[in-house]
Design a protein around this nucleic acid. Structure first.
Length: 489
RNA sequence: GGGCCCGUAGCGCAGCCAGGAUAGCGCGGCAGCCUCCUAAGCUGUUGGUCGUGGGUUCAAAUCCCACCGGGCCCGCCA
């Protein structure tokens, strides 16, 4: 018997449970226990496993708990046990003690047989699971927020794999966002000026992003200020001051690069439009835009990979958002959703009535969302798609292979994840109802410091790793000062 | 305004869904342990009004209600 060979304590537990069930069919044949009847007691002095069966019986049959327990206990006394060394009665409780000699013997045998796999109980029903995690925007280095995501996702993947599931780790490359287009704008300006930055690629791009964003914001705010007055002007001025401060900080890092970008924005008659143009051209698959954006995204991912390697985190697949769009998967989703009765056109935009869909499909109370579900905008008035719309296409792809898709994403995305689930079920992917799992985590908050990607204020994952390493070194050095330098890690 | 999540030892958390015995774990603190192989370790110990107040129950950290404190969401953003 496998349980005995691989999980001796589990066998002990099963033995107790079975004996109790057998006794129950004799003493209380109508009683139907719904879960495991034994659990570890609050205090080990009572035994190794314990059952509160007396109290459960007392409730259903209106009897005294200790009497009910005693009735069961009397039957157990004549039971021939293998791993149980002692059964005792204590009020409504029945406690079991394990035969330690036998258990130890079996445990050592199991260790010999399983070696490192000991204790990792395999599931009876292995599933194909895609864990999507990290998925950071490729416009700067990974920071402590995305680090939390990466570590969580990687741990979860390892646990699921250890359980015997078929796990694939995916990174969703968000290359169609406005943020990437902003980096592309600044990157192009530097390239045209023949300027090359030094350093780790994702850090370089992080600088370019923040600098370009600041330059664009400063110009936009100045233009708006010319026509504003009163409180509105005050608000704009405050915002402007902030970005000027950001620019001043960047100036101390790389003055030449910053001014090259500012000059480019100054010369541009409509820089915002230029950014949008890059975005549009990229979405269209226009050659030059594709070359530019792909170049910077690949550079950024190179930086990500280096950081993640240091943390021992790897991926099986890097899924590009653009691929979904260019292959027509997003269009297909829209076509199929339009055929459902839940999608309507509102002022030119395509709206998916999520609440209505959930109710009609009868999945409303399986969503764990108790407020009215707001509608989801699938396309803007100009026909362009939104993030969640592309995410629907992405998850359709995931579920072609996977039984389950786990998304490690911050709690702030809760609603979007529910909307995504409803959309998937609407498109007939019923396994998404149980299989799409949002592994939500709280956003990282640093005391007295507000992180902001746009303002270039963030603590990077690399810094965190360096800090962890140096603190570990310090600690080891303190405790054993005479060891050689290889004591690192 | 509506909804969701969180509040348990100095810090980080488990236990709550399916209520039971003296509320656990890690870190930290404190006290010990190296004339030989990893002390990068081990042993012991300290430490809690389970956010507050009601209610249900023989029994509440656990269920119900109210309140307090913190976070999040309710975009033609991602």
């Amino acid at each position: 018997m496998q349980l005995l060979e691989e999980n001796p304590f589990g066998a002990f537990k099963q033995e107790c449970d079975r004996a109790l069930r057998k006794a129950l069919t004799q003493a209380y044949p109508t009683f139907k226990p719904l879960r495991f009847l034994v659990e570890p007691p609050s205090n080990p002095q009572y035994g190794d496993l314990s059952s509160t069966i007396g109290f459960d019986l007392a409730k259903t049959f209106q009897v005294n708990p200790s009497e009910a327990a005693e009735k069961i206990f009397k039957i157990l006394e004549s039971e021939a046990f293998n791993l149980v060394s002692e059964v005792n009665l204590a009020g409504g409780y029945i406690n079991f003690k394990v035969n330690h000699v036998r258990l130890a013997e079996l445990t050592f045998k199991a260790l010999e047989k399983l070696e490192e796999a000991y204790g990792l109980l395999k599931t009876d029903r292995p599933e194909k699971i895609i864990v999507e995690h990290t998925s950071a925007n490729p416009n700067g280095p990974l920071h402590v927020g995305t680090a939390r995501n990466a570590i969580l996702g990687d741990c979860l993947s390892r646990l699921l794999a250890a359980r015997g599931h078929q796990v694939r780790r995916h990174f969703y490359v968000n290359d169609m966002g406005r943020q990437v287009a902003i980096v592309a704008y600044g990157y192009r300006a530097l390239k045209e000026a023949g300027l090359k930055l030094e350093g780790k690629p994702d850090f370089k791009l992080g600088f370019i992003y923040t600098a370009t964003n600041a330059a664009l914001e400063i110009r936009r705010l100045k233009e708006q200020l010319e026509q504003a007055s009163g409180g509105e002007a005050e608000r704009l001025r405050r915002s402007l001051d902030e970005y000027v401060a950001v620019a001043a900080e960047l100036e101390s890092q790389n003055r030449e690069a910053l001014y090259t970008i500012i000059e480019a924005v100054k010369k541009d008659s409509n820089p915002q439009e230029s950014v949008d143009e890059i975005l549009r051209n990229y979405e269209r698959g226009e050659e030059e835009a594709v070359r530019l954006v792909k170049e910077i995204v690949n550079l950024c991912l190179e930086g990500f990979r280096e950081t993640l390697r240091k943390a021992g985190i790897g991926f099986d697949s890097w899924d590009w958002e653009s691929q979904l769009v260019w292959e027509g998967k997003v269009k297909e989703v829209l076509t199929r959703l339009r055929e459902t009765p839940y999608v309507k056109v509102q002022e030119g935009a395509l709206i998916f009535e999520v609440e209505e869909a959930a109710q009609t499909l009868g999945i409303r109370d399986k969503l764990n969302f108790h407020d009215k579900l707001p509608p989801l905008t699938l396309t803007r008035r100009d026909g362009t798609t939104l993030y969640t719309t592309r995410d629907i296409a992405y998850h359709l792809e995931k579920f072609r292979w996977a039984d389950r898709a786990v998304n490690v994403i911050g709690v702030d995305q809760k609603l979007a994840q529910v909307q995504l689930k409803v959309a998937l079920v609407t498109l007939g992917v019923w396994k998404a109802l149980e299989g799409l799992y949002h592994c939500a985590y709280e956003l990282v908050k640093l005391p007295g410091y507000k992180m902001s990607r746009r303002r270039g204020r963030y603590v990077t994952f690399d810094e965190l790793l360096r800090e962890a390493e140096s603190r570990a070194y310090e600690e080891v050095d303190k405790r054993s000062p005479n060891l050689p330098r290889e004591e690192k890690k």
